[in-house]
Simulated assay, not measured.
Amino acid sequence: MISRRAFLVTAGGMAVTMAGTVGYTFEVEPEWLEVTTAALPIRRLPSSLVGKRLAQLSDIHIGPNVADRYVRRTFDTVRALQPDIVVVSGDLISLHPTQQKHAEAIYAELPRGSLGTFVTFGNHDYGRNWAQPSVAAGLRGALENLGITVLVNEVGVAGGLQLVGLGDLWAGQFRPEEAFARVDPAIAQLAVSHNPDTVDLPGWGNYDGWILAGHTHGGQCKPPFLPPPILPVQNRRYTSGAFELSRGRHMYISRGVGTFLPVRFNVRPEVTVFSLQSAD
Rank of each mutant, 00 (worst) to 15 (best):
T149G: 00
G127I: 15
Y107C: 14
G116C: 01
G147K: 03
L146P: 01
P133I: 05
R128V: 15
N129H: 12
T120S: 14
L139K: 02
A142L: 01
T149Q: 04
I148Q: 00
W130R: 10
G138R: 02
A105F: 03
A105N: 05
A131G: 05
S114C: 04
G113M: 09
T149A: 06
N123Q: 13
L143W: 02
V119Q: 04
A136S: 06
T117N: 07
I106L: 10
W130S: 14
A137I: 06
A137S: 15
L151F: 02
T117M: 08
A108V: 11
G127R: 09
D125L: 06
A137K: 13
L151Q: 06
T120R: 08
A142G: 03
I148H: 00
A105T: 11
P111F: 03
G127Q: 03
A105E: 09
F121S: 01
W130I: 14
S134Q: 14
G147V: 03
G113L: 12
G141P: 01
T117D: 01
W130V: 13
A136F: 08
L146I: 13
S134P: 01
G113Y: 10
P111G: 05
G138I: 01
Q132L: 14
R128F: 12
G113T: 03
E109K: 13
G147Y: 02
L110R: 15
A131R: 10
R112G: 01
I148R: 01
T117H: 05
P111H: 08
